[in-house]
Design a protein around this nucleic acid. Structure first.
Length: 472
RNA sequence: GUCCCCAUCGUCUAGUGGCCCAGGACGUCGGCCUCUCACGCCGGUAACGCGGGUUCAAACCCCGCUGGGGACGCCA
């Protein structure tokens, strides 16, 4: 049994998008599950469109998701000599030739073919000319003119394409750089890849690559072409669909485990199971339950999973994430011990960490600066409510152990005495303490806020209500 | 246009000839819980694209159609 070797080869011409991330995840899982090797390779042969920032962004995304690599990142731009060696080999063995046609000429050939309904491709004009190397000359592959090229795919099964359909692809460009198909094959061959797991938008490239493997006299790796991830409109996922880069999801307050969990279930299944923790995934992931049909990226399910992880992760972890998002919102570094008190109240309510930070604001803001929603003030801080606040404050001041239990007992007594239901006090109190009408439970909030701040907020609410309430 | 791939609830999927007048999850709808909002719990809605075969039996196998996606670059 040879060691499993997989790779993820992003091109630094864009962000690490969710589709790429899922491909990386599948490759990573397969390598890790089999005790193999996972290689990261940056495909930057398109010098004009590649950038260092994109490379860093991709690496950030990988690290955030926890997809660590054993080798690399390799950069194709630093392996030019290697590619040239292989190109020379193809030239020597008669599998490739020099071509002097200009891009414009080739485009004209394609247009012509298209016009007659034929396959738009290079017409092979330089194929028999036996040209030598020289300026203005690219290297093309001599694609067989008849027959077909076939291979076995782990998800698609047998795939075959007529060779007549294939172009005499360029192997080395005018600028001396290798093209994608050549570089991928050389890399995959020299890195001894055993499995190539990638999006099925590469399916039609595969026959060309198979031809190259054959020309090099090398065995094929196992191919697994996973279906694409589409937008809600069933079109290829793009910026039009909103956030598509994984780092954008990080910034929106998603947890990496939620992202990983969501992604792995897109095109892969393990019976009816929806929630997978990493150690479990490593155990049960396999290539034979990959789906065959394209799938749609569903934000609402991701959100559900994210809330699931927010609810179940340890309070300390969530609290430190909350701290990050609070500073992001302009709050000073909050005391983590304090944050750990409020996190349990927010865990079931927050879909993302950004939402949680929003909900946490009233806990961390200064009492006198608590924003009060005007409509809620008008509606709930009535003269009657203010009357209750006035009577409640002295009693609250006397509560010795300011916790939920004591507070509940104190309120119970007060309610009986006044002959009112808690219902009539709840919303006014909520508005007084949080400035809003939606929040965790009143007693929970009071305990976390503490006596002094509760008293201050009630007093302030009385003043606010007066100012706002002409009906008083 | 040509080639390749695909086709189960709105979405992700289970299903590999009888266990399926199709199961789970998200969403959605209704209810319970309740100090608001959530969480949780209970229940409902909702799918095998169409037409032919093969078979005692088809969501599952074969053919065609339709629909969708991808590719056809000196991008990856």
């Amino acid at each position: 049994m040879t060691q499993v070797i997989t790779r993820f080869p992003p091109s630094p011409t864009g962000h690490l998008h969710v589709g790429g991330a899922r491909t990386a995840l599948f490759n990573w899982l397969w390598a890790r599950k089999n005790g193999g090797k996972f290689i990261l390779r940056i495909e930057d042969t398109d010098v004009a469109r590649s950038s260092e920032e994109m490379t860093q962004g991709i690496l950030d995304g990988m690290r955030w998701l926890g997809l660590d690599w054993d080798e690399g990142p390799y950069f194709q731009s630093r392996r030019i000599d290697l590619y040239n060696q292989y190109i020379d080999q193809l030239l020597e063995t008669g599998h490739a030739y020099f071509c002097a046609c200009t891009p414009d000429e080739v485009e004209a050939m394609r247009a012509e073919a298209r016009a007659t309904g034929a396959v738009p491709k290079y017409n092979g004009r330089c194929r028999g000319r036996d040209l030598k190397n020289g300026p203005g000359r690219v290297v093309r592959f001599k694609t067989p003119e008849s027959g077909e090229t076939a291979f076995q795919d782990l998800v698609k099964g047998p795939v075959a394409v007529p060779n007549a359909q294939l172009d005499d692809m360029v192997l080395r460009r005018l600028d001396g750089m290798p093209t994608y198909n050549l570089a991928v094959v050389v890399d995959d061959v020299t890195m001894n890849l055993t499995h190539v797991i990638r999006g099925d938008d590469h399916l039609s490239n595969t026959p060309k690559q198979v031809l190259l493997y054959e020309a090099f006299g090398r065995d094929l790796p196992r191919f697994a072409h996973v279906p694409m991830i589409l937008g809600p409109d069933k079109k290829k996922l793009s910026k039009r669909h909103g956030a598509t880069s994984v780092t954008a999801y990080r910034d929106m307050g998603y947890l990496p485990e939620a992202m990983v969990n969501y992604l792995v279930r897109l095109g892969w299944s393990h019976g009816d199971q929806e929630v997978f923790h990493l150690d479990e995934l490593l155990r049960v992931f396999s290539l034979d339950h990959l789906g065959t049909a394209a799938c749609v990226f569903d934000q609402s399910k991701l959100l559900w999973l994210n809330n699931h992880y927010i609810k179940n992760e340890p309070v300390e972890r969530i609290a430190s994430l909350l701290a990050v998002h609070l500073t992001e919102r302009g709050f000073g570094r909050a005391d983590e011990n304090y944050l750990q008190l409020i996190v349990p109240l927010l865990q079931p309510r927050a879909g993302t960490m950004v939402e949680m930070a929003e909900m946490a604001e009233f806990f961390v803001v200064e009492d006198e600066r608590l924003p009060m929603d005007p409509a809620s003030v008008d509606k709930f801080l009535t003269p009657e409510a203010r009357g209750h606040f006035g009577r409640l404050r002295p009693r609250l001041a006397e509560v010795v152990v300011f916790d939920q239990q004591s507070l509940e007992a104190m309120f119970k007594e007060y309610l009986v005495e006044q002959g009112v239901a808690f219902k009539v006090l709840a919303q006014p109190l909520r508005v007084a303490l949080t400035g809003k009408t939606k929040s965790p439970g009143i007693y929970e909030i009071m305990e976390v806020l503490g006596k002094d701040r509760v008293l201050r907020r009630l007093a302030r609410a009385e003043r606010k209500g007066e100012a706002a309430g002409p009906t008083g």
